[in-house]
Simulated scan of single mutants.
Amino acid sequence: MHRRATLVLLCGLPASGKTTLARRLAAELPAVRLCADEWLTDLGADLFDAGLRARLERRFWRLAQDLLGQGRSVILESGFWRRADRDEKRAGARALGAAVELRFLDVPLDELARRLEVRNAEAPWATAVIPPALLESHAPLFEPPSPAELALFDPPAC
C-alpha cells in the first residue's frame, strides 16, 4: 500500500524524548529526520547561536518541502514551542498534499529536569548541556498545543 507523504512535527521541551521518538518513527514510517541539535553539534557550532539555528531551521523547512513534494515523509525535531510555527508548517505541508502530524511530548518540568541532569552527566559532549535552571526559566515561553489545536492535525500513522 502506498502511503501519503507525511510531515511529523515533534513538539516539546528539551529532554522530553523528541529525538528518541524521531529515531523510532524514521524507521517505521520511513521518513527523513532533520534535527538541528545534531547538525549543529556535528559542525562544532554553538547550539545556542540563535541566528545560526534560525538559518538552519529555514534550510530544513525548504528541504522538507522539497522532500514532501517528492512524496517522502519528513520528521522535524525543532520542538515547535510556538503555535505560529506549528500553524505555518501545517499549512505549508498541506498545500503540498502531505498529511501533517503533531506529536506533543508533554512531560512534567520536574521529570525534564531529572532527565537533563542524567543527560548532562552521561554525555555532555553529545548535545548542549542545559542546566535545569535554564529549563525552568525558559519553560514559560513554551506554548503547549491545546486539544483544539491538536485536532487540526492528522492522527498518527504509527
Rank of each mutant, 00 (worst) to 15 (best):
G69I: 09
L56F: 08
F104A: 06
P108G: 08
V129Q: 05
D85V: 02
R62M: 12
P144S: 08
L141N: 11
F104W: 15
A95V: 07
P140D: 12
A121S: 13
D87C: 09
T127I: 00
L96Y: 02
F142T: 00
L68Q: 06
R58D: 15
A121H: 09
L76D: 03
E57S: 11
R114S: 12
P131T: 11
L150K: 00
L43G: 01
I130N: 04
E117G: 15
D42A: 15
P131E: 15
R62H: 14
T127F: 12
S146R: 06
P131F: 11
V129N: 03
T127W: 05
A93P: 03
E122H: 12
A98Q: 06
E88T: 12
G92R: 10
W61R: 15
L105N: 05
L102Q: 01
L63T: 14
D106H: 04
G79W: 04
R82F: 12
D85K: 01
W61F: 12
D46E: 14
F153L: 02
F60Q: 14
L109C: 06
A126R: 15
A99I: 00
G44I: 07
D87G: 04
E101F: 07
A98W: 06
P140K: 11
R55Q: 15
W81V: 04
P145H: 05
P144N: 07
E88G: 07
P140T: 11
A64M: 10
I130W: 05
A151N: 01
A139T: 10
L102G: 00
R103D: 01
E111N: 02
R58S: 15
L63A: 14
S146N: 05
A139H: 12
L76F: 05
P124Q: 13
A148N: 02
E111H: 03
W125C: 02
E136F: 13
A133F: 03
R90E: 08
V74P: 05
L134N: 01
A133H: 05
G92C: 11
L150W: 01
W125E: 15
E77T: 04
L96K: 01
F60N: 09
F60T: 00
G92W: 11
A95M: 10
A98H: 07
L43I: 01
A123I: 01
R119C: 08
L116Q: 06
I130Y: 05
P145E: 10
E101A: 07
T127N: 14
A64E: 09
D42Y: 05
L52G: 13
L102M: 02
R82P: 02
G69A: 12
R62V: 12
L67T: 01
P144A: 10
L43N: 00
A54H: 13
L63S: 11
E101V: 13
G79P: 03
G69P: 04
V118D: 07
P140G: 13
E136L: 14
V118F: 04
G51A: 14
L47Y: 02
E149Q: 10
R83A: 14
E101S: 06
L109D: 08
L152N: 02
R90T: 04
A98R: 04
P132A: 11
P147G: 09
L96G: 03
